[in-house]
């Protein structure tokens, strides 16, 4: 049982460490955004990777997703799939990748 007093006592230090880590990564994000990578898209990609890592720390440690019940994971898995579908919207603005050149 991860919610026992002993476990909680142990995780308090962990929370502080994660907090410090998050601040460190925030500084890294800001610094990286001023570095000129070959393309700006690459800057965005790197920035998003760092942000995702930070978000994962918050979700896993602070929100206890590292030891949650299966049910919560199931709900979140479905949500993630649908959210990804939602993120695909922008693809519809670009041209049609399928081109017919006669039959």
């Amino acid at each position: 049982m991860a919610d026992s007093p002993e476990e909680i006592q142990k995780s308090i230090r962990k929370y502080l460490w994660i907090g410090a880590l998050l601040i460190l990564f925030t500084i890294i994000t800001v610094a990286l955004s001023y570095v000129e990578l070959p393309t700006h898209s690459l800057n965005i990609l790197v920035g998003m990777i760092v942000a995702t890592f930070k978000a994962a720390l918050v979700a896993l440690i602070f929100m206890h997703l590292n030891h949650e019940r299966p049910l919560i994971y199931k709900v979140l898995a479905f949500t993630t799939v649908f959210a990804l579908a939602l993120f695909m919207l922008f693809i519809f603005t670009s041209g049609d990748p399928l081109v017919f050149e006669g039959f």
Partner: peptide, 23 residues
């Protein structure tokens, strides 16, 4: 329930979204 999230653009065939997406 699952599939119902993945069919929405069939209301939008006429918006010119392209053959691949319509397919």
């Amino acid at each position: 329930g699952f599939l119902s999230f993945l069919v929405w653009a069939h209301h939008m065939y006429l918006t010119g979204m392209g053959t691949m997406m319509s397919t």
